[in-house]
């Protein structure tokens, strides 16, 4: 464990907690893409399969349970909670997210490190996570006013994988100089997809104005 990775995990945890608090406090999920939340549940389920097989550390197992639990809880709130589900804007959240799941799965079948069940699903989860934010970004472009909590949520979610990139550089130089293109490139693409959002988010924060993404 290194500072970059811990900072990355804490940023990721904070983003999810922030979203959960926003939904619970305001009893609203306006501006949040259910599609992205569902994609993240698929990412965590396909990545944390080894949760009960391989024990790395208490921290690792605990965080996996927290990520799985909170992401499913968010989807439950948006789909089934009697008040929150009314605030979900179905006809704005239009991204066909299953057009992301299938290609990522096929790509994982073609490009992977070992052809084993766990490895294929782990690789699939990396590919899927790199594009999972797209429905949310598309929804933000349509939103006239993005509330601060939602903007901060997306910012932290984007920042966590950026910190992981530093973590991989650090591990490369301090551990064993092994190249791992699949997680590295997936993480790079994932972070690159946020650059547009990062630019407008930081500019709105500097100019003290409302966050607005160009349509």
């Amino acid at each position: 464990m290194n500072a970059f990775r811990l900072a990355g995990d804490m940023t990721h945890l904070l983003s999810i907690i922030l979203l959960l608090l926003k939904i619970r406090a305001t009893k609203s999920c306006a501006g949040i893409s259910l599609k992205t939340q569902e994609l993240y549940v698929i990412v965590f389920m396909s990545r944390y399969l080894d949760l009960f097989r391989t024990y790395y550390s208490l921290y690792n197992s605990l965080m996996k349970i927290i990520f799985l639990g909170t992401s499913m809880c968010i989807v439950w709130y948006m789909r089934s909670h009697k008040v929150v589900r009314q605030t979900y804007n179905n006809d704005e959240d239009t991204f066909r997210h299953f057009f992301l799941v299938l290609p990522c799965f096929v790509l994982a079948l073609l490009v992977h490190r070992n052809f084993t069940f766990i490895e294929i699903l782990w690789t699939f989860s990396l590919y899927l996570e790199s594009v999972a934010i797209l429905p949310q970004l598309v929804l933000l472009q349509k939103s006239s006013n993005i509330d601060n909590l939602t903007g901060t949520y997306v910012f932290l979610l984007g920042a966590y994988r950026g910190l992981y990139l530093f973590n991989w550089v650090y591990r490369f130089f301090t551990e064993n100089h092994r190249v791992r293109w699949i997680p590295w490139l997936s993480g790079l693409i994932q972070t690159a997809i946020y650059t547009d959002f990062f630019y407008y988010y930081i500019r709105s924060w500097k100019n003290r104005e409302k966050l607005k993404l160009p349509a």
């Binding site: 990775r5 790395y56 690792n60 990520f67 782990w122 551990e175 997680p183």
Partner: peptide
């Protein structure tokens, strides 16, 4: 030794 992978990460 177990082959190095980044699976010990989240």
């Amino acid at each position: 030794a177990a082959e190095f992978s980044l699976k010990d990460e989240l």
